[in-house]
Design a protein around this nucleic acid. Structure first.
Lengths: 119, 119
DNA sequence: CTTGACCTTGGAGCGTAGTCCACTGTTTAG
DNA sequence: CTAAACAGTGGACTACGCTCCAAGGTCAAG
């Protein structure tokens, strides 16, 4: 599939897709005329990329994980390990949020000042 | 307190504090000699800013919330409302993370490919 | 054969969040 | 009095993640 179709299917702009290629986040073969040619799995990969991005993972991290996966001797094992690592990160982030939530809930209603200086 | 002491107490660099002042995130009076003079509550405010930042809130958002608070007719009410809003955002973010966690957990071990193209 | 949709490249520009630097002024300690 | 430690300013610079633009190549339809 060419870049326009991939863009349409994923909601990621052509410019962004070219940018993602530059930073190693997606890969495309080239057709004889020089056009990029992506395969269908890239759609799923980009859905994953978008989710990971939304949750605060950097493009570099995501790309690195993709590469680790590629280089792994056992794909299934590597995938499981990657997911388990991400789950740990997600758990840690959820714990942080829970802590902030607790802090906010404790302060709500007390009138405890967070900010002294009026703008 | 002058900028150096505030930096030492909060772990936020002087340059960053000056930058925060420029974007309206902190406020300082000035001493006769032109030096910034912060009050003690700014330490707590910055701790809060750092937590909020770590959780993905932008400086603009944080500054805006600070201003809303300042402009509110009833400080305690405004504070409660702000915290409740943040708690809702935090809950939403936790739900997103829980969804990703579920997705990851479901895929871990299945060998379902996320990425087709080898780098 | 032209028009238009699609593709290519390179490079500029933007918003966010700092970080660093040079140069200058102020305060404090020996 | 001088040196060090602190403060001020303005401006350049960085990294990230896009986003836009100009100039041009490719291809299918009319």
């Amino acid at each position: 599939m060419r870049i326009g179709e991939l863009a349409a299917r994923t909601g990621v702009s052509r410019d962004t897709l070219r940018f993602y290629e530059r930073v190693g986040l997606v890969e495309g073969r080239r057709l004889a005329n020089g056009y990029r040619d992506f395969d269908a799995e890239t759609v799923e990969w980009l859905a994953y990329v978008r989710t990971a991005r939304a949750l605060g993972f950097s493009l570099a991290e995501i790309a690195r994980h993709g590469e680790e996966l590629r280089d792994a001797p056992d794909q299934a094992d590597a995938l499981s390990a990657l997911f388990e690592e991400k789950i740990r990160i997600v758990d840690a982030r959820m714990a942080e949020l829970a802590a902030l939530r607790g802090e906010l809930a404790a302060r709500a209603g007390t009138g405890c000042p967070l900010r002294a200086a009026g703008a």
